[in-house]
């Protein structure tokens, strides 16, 4: 079962304007596991999630979710497929004009005809799972960043999806809420049997929960494997990234002319 991958990405090419973002990305994301996609900032990790979610179309290659090719689907079938997915956005993306309760209830109201009492029960269950049942009457503006992300997580799991995409879940969190989120993601995955894709560049946290890791750089998959195998990978680029060394094959300096020449060429303008 876990050997039939849930999401398959094959030969993905994508460019925005003149810059090529992906040049042939292949991935197999196993069912019921947490798969991390890591890489330096600016490598298009969020773009990859949008491609998987069907919000962007690739120039070439394809994305298959549970046997359905995402970019071949009609608009209606795509929306039906999205019901089986949840996505946690970097900023939380809570609807600022709805309360916490209504935010979590939103997918339920849109996609189901459940009576109000049942919607209420479901919402409270989801809020309980993220520990924010007491905050249901607050507006998103009154929440801290970590709480907003947990509410967004409750909303993402409101319809009991089979796949959750996490976009940078740990960015800008204090250590405590970071720990809370790490625990939540792991627990949800085990309790609900979800397939999770975590996009992140927070190496330490991600490696503790991921079952499998893809590292992308320069528009291609640079390395993949279990966290343990990546830790001892000999490829200098991989080890630089995994161990967080400041300089290495990925240079610390933005490309520039020689330092001394630049300093000595005073008077020659900027």
């Amino acid at each position: 079962m876990s050997d039939t991958p849930f999401v398959v990405v094959e030969g993905l090419h994508f460019s925005r304007g003149d810059t090529e973002i992906f040049r042939g990305v292949d991935m197999r994301i196993p069912r019921g596991r947490i798969t991390a996609i890591m890489g330096p900032s600016g490598t298009g990790k969020t773009t990859l999630l949008k491609l998987i979610g069907g919000q962007l179309s690739p120039d070439a290659g394809r994305v298959t979710i549970d046997g359905e090719e995402v970019h071949r689907l009609s608009r209606k079938a795509l929306f039906a497929l999205r019901r089986r997915m949840g996505m946690l956005f970097q900023s939380g993306a809570l609807f600022s004009d709805l309360s916490v309760f209504e935010n979590v209830a939103f997918p339920l109201r849109v996609h189901t005809d459940l009576p109000d009492a049942m919607v209420r029960d479901l919402v409270l269950m989801k809020l309980e799972a993220v520990g924010l049942r007491g905050a249901r009457e607050l507006m998103p503006a009154e929440l801290s960043g970590g709480m907003a992300r947990r509410v967004a997580l409750a909303r993402a799991i409101a319809l009991d999806p089979e796949l959750i995409l996490y976009d940078e879940p740990f960015v800008g969190q204090d250590p405590i809420s970071m720990g809370v989120l790490v625990q939540l993601i792991k627990r949800l995955n085990q309790a609900l049997g979800l397939t999770s894709i975590v996009v992140s560049h927070d190496i330490k946290e991600t490696l503790t929960i991921a079952d499998y890791v893809y590292v992308i750089a320069d528009g291609q998959v640079m390395a993949h494997g279990t966290p343990e195998s990546l830790d001892v990978d000999q490829d200098p680029r991989v080890s630089q990234f995994v161990h967080g060394e400041p300089d290495g094959p990925v240079p610390f300096h933005y490309p520039a002319v020689d330092y001394f020449k630049d300093i000595l060429s005073a008077g020659g303008g900027r």
Binding site: M85, F95, V110
Partner: peptide
Amino acid sequence: GLMKATEQLTSMEMIGV
């Protein structure tokens, strides 16, 4: 614009609205 910048529009689309 703010709804777009805070990804509210995108997340609405992902929820299927």
